Simulated scan of single mutants.
Amino acid sequence: MSASESPEKTTQAPEVAAYWAERRRYLESIRKSPEVRQRYWREVAVYMARRLLWSFGFFPVFLAFWVPLVLASFNPVVLASDLIPLLQEFVGSNPEVQATMLSTLAIAWASVGFLFLIFDFVLTPFRSPYEYEADVYMKAWEQLNQEQLPAKV
């Protein structure tokens, strides 16, 4: 034993290794379970749908209404009086100008959506049902093994 190693670390090392070996063994065994595999793919689909809906549905729409409302000092009358001439100008313009305006809005919507999607993936990572099942199993395994281990001095 080196001077930097404490007796606590050397006694914990086999326990930690046994914990991770048991966790790996359990994960391998539940990966074969069709129920957990089906739940995994369902949760992946729900996770992706939720991230896409938040990023491309809520945030760009929210910003499209919030920013003009802030610029109008939270006064909807001022907001409407500012937007009505812009909408009339859009309707009265030629088709090329309308197409350019719509493509610009689509690019802005997509860029805001992708920006929020990237941050959403970083801030809310996917939690696998395999990991959840392993966490539950390992808590029970720890309790069972703690009862079997002799009391430490």
Rank of each mutant, 00 (worst) to 15 (best):
F65V: 00
L86A: 04
V70H: 08
F121S: 02
A45M: 04
A49G: 15
D82L: 06
V136W: 04
P14W: 04
E89N: 05
E35F: 04
S128R: 11
A13Y: 02
F126R: 10
V122Y: 06
E147R: 12
G92A: 05
A21L: 05
W20N: 15
P95C: 04
S93W: 01
L115R: 04
V91Y: 01
I118K: 01
V61A: 02
R24K: 13
Q88I: 11
F116M: 12
W41F: 06
L149H: 11
A17T: 07
R51P: 09
R42C: 04
L102T: 08
W54S: 09
E35I: 06
V61P: 00
F62I: 00
E28Y: 02
A3Y: 13
T100P: 03
V153G: 00
A17G: 07
R25E: 04
F59H: 08
F58M: 08
N94P: 02
S128I: 10
E35P: 00
S81T: 15
S6Q: 02
S4D: 14
A3D: 15
L117T: 00
I84A: 02
D82R: 08
M138C: 02
V16I: 07
Y47A: 05
L83C: 14
I84S: 14
V122R: 15
L86V: 00
A72W: 07
F116T: 03
F62N: 00
I30F: 14
F74M: 15
A64N: 05
E142S: 13
Q12S: 09
I30H: 15
S111M: 01
M101D: 15
Y40V: 12
V97Q: 08
L115M: 02
V36L: 13
V46T: 05
A110P: 06
Y47P: 01
L86I: 03
L144T: 12
K9T: 12
S103E: 10
P125S: 10
W66E: 13
K9W: 14
R127I: 01
A64I: 00
S111Q: 01
L71C: 12
E147Q: 13
V97R: 14
P7Y: 08
S6N: 11
Q143M: 13
E131R: 09
R127E: 14
S4K: 05
L115Q: 03
Y130N: 09
E5R: 15
V122G: 07
V44C: 03
F62Y: 02
Y40P: 05
E96P: 06
Y130W: 08
W66I: 09
F65A: 10
V46R: 06
Y19C: 13
G57P: 06
M48E: 12
V112C: 04
T10C: 05
V61Q: 05
R24Q: 08
A3I: 14
E28D: 12
A108S: 12
E22Y: 08
L79S: 08
P129I: 03
F58S: 06
V112R: 03
S93V: 01
S2A: 14
E133Q: 09
L52Q: 14
M1A: 13
V70M: 03
T100V: 04
V112A: 02
F116Q: 11
F56E: 12
N94Y: 13
M138K: 13
M138T: 04
Y26V: 03
S2L: 15
G92C: 06
R42Q: 11
L71I: 04
E131D: 03
P76C: 09
P7C: 11
A140P: 04
